[in-house]
Design a protein around this nucleic acid. Structure first.
Length: 107
DNA sequence: CGACTGACTCGAT
DNA sequence: TATCGAGCCAGTC
């Protein structure tokens, strides 16, 4: 199956939209759930291009260490508003907030 | 065609 | 958790 950015993007949207409030996912998780485990980098690219009118909770997506996206200060604020407590170094506590899900998109 | 880039990840330290 | 290095993959120039 050839990689299609449009399909991938749709899956990413679906995955991100399904993240419950107060939980977070890593880019790798989103990529895996979207059906393309090796495209974690593409998740970041897609999320950076997601139109505002979709109102996706992309602030609930962080990298695998819990670090937030660079040059996006609003993310920390949004997370805090949902009760996600950041560690003093600005990282999300993945052990506490990482969303544990097997699979939400049928391939 | 090739080099570079990135909101990434993983293993070792 | 932090840092390093190597691997990753499609887009861009």
């Amino acid at each position: 199956m050839k990689f299609q950015l449009d399909d991938f993007r749709q899956n990413v949207y679906a995955v991100v939209a399904a993240i419950p409030p107060g939980r977070v996912l890593t880019y790798g998780d989103v990529a895996r759930l979207a059906g393309w485990p090796l495209h974690s980098r593409w998740v970041g690219r897609v999320l950076s291009q997601v139109p505002d009118n979709l109102h996706l909770p992309c602030h609930r997506v962080v990298n695998h260490t819990g670090r937030l996206a660079p040059s996006w200060d609003e993310q920390a604020w949004l997370l805090a508003a949902e009760g996600v407590r950041l560690k003093s170094n600005g990282c999300v506590d993945l052990n506490t907030y990482r969303w544990k899900v097997e699979k939400i998109i049928a391939q």
